[in-house]
Amino acid sequence: MTDSLTKDPGAAIAAPGSNKKKIVRRRSKRLKRLFPYLLVAPAVIYLLMITLYPGIYAIIQSFYFVKFGPWRPVGLENYVELFNDREFWAALWNTFVIGSISLCLQCVLALLLAYYAYRDPWIQGWRIVFLVPMLFMPSAVAFIFKLAFLDGRVFSDLLIRIGLIDSNLAIPSSIWMSRALLILADTWQWTPFLFIIFVAALQGQDEEVEEAARLDGASWAAIFWNISLPLMRPVIAVALILRAIDITTMFANVFIITKGGPGGATETISYFIYRIGFKTFNFGYASAASVVMLILTVIIAQLVVKRAFVSGRG
């Protein structure tokens, strides 16, 4: 161990200029202790620049009225206004509704598909087909759905052809059809994400357990429900958390497909902050909304994400 101390890269740097072995040893010891911090420091500093700096900036700005002129301090006014702002609460609600429906739908679909796919001998070869939607840029996917359902009316036309409806659907003026459209676009693109993760998790499980259960006469559905599913719970948690993060921060689809309409029914929290900040240029107010979101994010990170990722892993 002491031998490796002197071989420490830090020792070589510390050595020149000092001939006393003791000092070198002490310095290299300190360097040895600092070494892992030095390795991780650049990444942490870089990330602090995009999280801590903007966080502090947003907190300060949220106490000011900021439009184009000089900043004018307004105390808590932005927050008071925010908590009385029906549009803000609506945006939170919309994010929750659209997000939770999408998440449940995608999880159920992906589990069902993974259940049928993971035992398939050819699935390794043709699962790439299932991944296609995921490989498009989200902004491109948004345009696919905008054209098919709104501008090009392809969906309405197909329904008319098979006789389900008589005239074009008025999707843009319907709250639930607009929301459903966002949910559908997200589900089309991202169910594959959950699917391949679930397939990988299922295939990684011990086959012998399944075979033993099988020999005891258990049905495949029972094996899946009672053995495979409980075993893959940590994986499901991680995958759903990652998906939940992206759904709740959904922006491109709202920006391109619905612009938050009709009447704000599809305005998510990300779009709300964007609209306040970069359409009405009320930066102080938008920052107040950002701070509220930031606090929510930190709470959820501590409660949910930390448990799924950090504990329960080797």
Binding site: T249, I269, S290, L294, T297, A301
Partner: peptide, 10 residues
């Protein structure tokens, strides 16, 4: 986990 919108303005 940070929503881009949160840090977008700063």
């Amino acid at each position: 986990m940070m929503a881009p919108a949160i840090v977008a303005i700063p």
